[in-house]
Nucleic acid binder design. Structure first.
Lengths: 167, 167
DNA sequence: TTTATTTTGTCTACTAGGAAACAAATAACA
DNA sequence: TGTTATTTGTTTCCTAGTAGACAAAATAAA
């Protein structure tokens, strides 16, 4: 043996196995998209999760906290903290419906509306950067595949093969 | 006004805006894939990150800690903890090369080899579950698109439009 | 050589998120 | 009706991951 120790040259490494892992590819892609989010939103003091929450409430005024949690795959405990903070900041209003006094309905305040409007205005730029390496057709196809992968294309509710489901 | 408060019926909500967000779609997909990972690996005491680290070291014996960190997009601080723990568990061996005494080269121990072998044996099942909703052709296309999106198809090193880059 | 700059890994907070126990309200059931 | 089970949100504790300062070694510059 010419080389006594099997040491990689530190420049060229192989990632064969990694490329085969959908989980790894998804994780990296997600980290990149978050990076683009912060690059574009840098000055605004918001996080990706908060934005999706605000946007979902905007689209569904009066939606229940638990439904937001389920839709966005955010744990209820975390949602509880997040909403409390947003209420403190004056972005969302919470109200208890009279027909079910356990639940909490969420609506945006004026400030919340303004905030999410300002933010969504920058969405296209984030999307553009995120899929910059792809052709428009590839970007569209990627979306379609992810929607299908996530079971978001079904009109029916229960997919139930979802391992992240809280049972 | 017939309906005094614009309250959503709590069953049917719309997620129009969310579906348009690649970041959200990626996040949900990634959560699902992690869910499948734990469902299949349930009995083994390993996390997705640890598995990718072990697998990368197996493929590149003697790889430096920093290179693992960069390749897997794991922060160096976190990598430091992770490797220390793995060394304690007897899975990896660390050695300081004589030509650069700052660096640390990583190799798998016998136990590490056995561990990652047992784990990778279950990879196909995880992959199968993760892309169960897609046809084989769609799964392959999704991989291809993610690899391209992540810039992993380029042989050259620097992409540099990567916002997650530690500068 | 001496001095600055960069690289590499570690350490010390700090934050986001998760698990599990909990309380209150509702629903299901005898 | 009373009793049990489920749903809904909250609280507390814990872990994974991040940011930033740090030390040591290597490199570049004087």
């Amino acid at each position: 043996m010419a080389s006594p120790t099997p040491t990689a040259p530190a420049q060229k490494i192989t990632t064969e196995s990694l490329r085969g892992s959908l989980g790894f590819l998804l994780r990296v892609a997600q980290l990149r998209s978050f990076g683009h989010f912060f690059a574009v939103m840098g000055d605004e003091e918001v996080r990706p999760g908060e934005v999706t929450v605000l946007d979902l409430i905007r689209e569904n005024p009066g939606i229940r906290q638990g439904m937001v949690s389920k839709t966005l795959k955010i744990k209820r405990a975390q949602m509880s903290k997040m909403i409390r903070e947003m209420e403190r900041e004056g972005l969302v209003a919470r109200s208890v419906p009279e027909d079910d006094r356990r639940a909490i309905e969420l609506r945006l305040t004026k400030e919340g509306e303004a905030m999410i409007a300002a933010i969504t205005a920058r969405f296209p730029e984030i999307e553009r950067r995120t899929q910059a390496a792809l052709t428009p057709a590839e970007g569209a196809e990627l979306r379609r595949l992810l929607i299908k992968l996530n079971g978001l294309d079904k009109t029916k509710g229960e997919d139930s093969d979802d391992p992240d489901d809280e049972r």
